[in-house]
């Protein structure tokens, strides 16, 4: 809210996340404009969560970053834990995957929300509590006044995640990072939580970085998407373009492995395609393109030289990109 208009909500340049032995993120760059929404997809181990934690300065012990993370006029990657802590929860915040383990089990949920408000705005306890109740009301939590006094284990998973979102959004951050916010929830409440998150983000004009392996969620909530594989962004662009006409074989594979009513069956008649092989472990990344061992189009060049992310609106990092419809027509 305080930043100069025009500057992106976040701009990441050549982010590297490493613990000295293995490198989880290998040179990632992207930017999200004010109010923009970007999805970050990829399998487990692709580095998407480490990217998010690096932006927040919340990497586990022993991990460090290189590169720039520009946000609100500063490079977050250069800030001390103390300087960064005054921004976390205020100008950028994060919603985690498992709301049960992510909330403090021994404090009442109301206290946890009002603490954030008091900490960052300095208002008195009563005001903070009123604001917390307002937040909970916005999250359509039932009887917020009494729910304030509940402990995390006493409420449902969907309610816990809404509490988590209320905490993250309480101070109207410029950027919200949501790391698989619905994965741990029952299918029946996933949609409701996403709808509430969506509405609250819109209302605040915050930018959103949505991390998930659930492609329909990205399609419904984001304008752009970045596909990560083995610590790098392999394809990035407007959601429609990426999902309709992917250039990278990994993106194609991801899209083809989404189960639908029509292609999904377990009896051998399934037309659902899965990508052969597995995500390479960080300590044994292949030379060249990280995807080459699993790629149908891999050539010798793919096995030796790493392709860079190139393109205009749709960028992809592939030596043999899938031909666009117009290119096919022209041939």
């Amino acid at each position: 809210m305080t930043s100069s208009s025009g500057a992106p909500a976040i701009e990441v340049r050549d982010l590297v996340v490493t613990n000295g032995e293995v490198t989880a993120v290998r040179g990632v760059s992207f930017s999200i404009p004010q109010g923009g929404r970007m999805g970050l997809v990829g399998e487990s181990g692709s580095g998407k969560s480490m990217t998010a934690l690096a932006l927040m300065g919340l990497l586990p012990m022993g991990w460090s970053t290189r590169g720039e993370v520009l946000h609100d006029g500063v490079d977050l990657a250069k800030l001390s834990d103390k300087a960064l802590s005054s921004r976390r929860g205020r100008t950028l915040s994060m919603v985690f995957q498992d709301p049960l383990s992510s909330l403090n089990p021994v404090r009442r949920v109301g206290d946890q929300i009002s603490w954030v408000i008091r900490h960052h705005t300095g208002v008195d306890k009563r005001t903070a509590e009123h604001q917390a109740i307002a937040m909970m009301t916005q999250m359509t939590l039932p009887r917020p006044e009494s729910l304030m006094r509940a402990y995390p284990h006493e409420i449902s998973g969907g309610q816990r995640q809404r509490i988590m979102i209320a905490m993250a959004l309480a101070c109207y951050p410029q950027l919200i990072i949501a790391d698989e916010p619905t994965t741990a929830l029952d299918v029946t409440v996933q949609k409701q939580v996403l709808r509430l998150l969506n509405a609250a983000v819109s209302e605040r004009g915050s930018a959103l970085l949505m991390i998930t392996h659930d492609l329909p969620i990205i399609a419904a909530m984001c304008d752009t998407v970045a596909v990560m594989y083995a610590g790098r962004i392999v394809e990035m662009g407007p959601v429609r373009q990426v999902f309709r006409h992917p250039r990278h074989h990994y993106t194609r594979g991801l899209l083809d492995s989404q189960p639908t009513m029509d292609n999904f069956a377990l009896d051998g008649t399934s037309r659902l395609v899965s990508i052969p092989g597995m995500v390479p472990p960080l300590h044994a990344l292949p030379d060249g393109c990280g995807f080459n061992p699993r790629c149908p189009a891999a050539s010798d060049r793919c096995r030796t030289i790493m392709p860079e992310l190139t393109g205009d609106t749709l960028k992809s990092a592939c030596w043999h990109p899938i031909a666009r419809v117009d290119e096919v027509a022209a041939q």
């Binding site: 586990p60 929860g89 985690f96 992510s102």
Partner: peptide, 22 residues
């Protein structure tokens, strides 16, 4: 190493504050 300590930091505590308070 618990998630809730990370959450405490994510909403504005320093590493030390999160350790002592949460």
């Amino acid at each position: 190493n618990q998630d809730y300590v990370r959450t405490a930091r994510a909403v504005g505590m320093t590493r030390t504050q999160a350790l002592l308070n949460v």
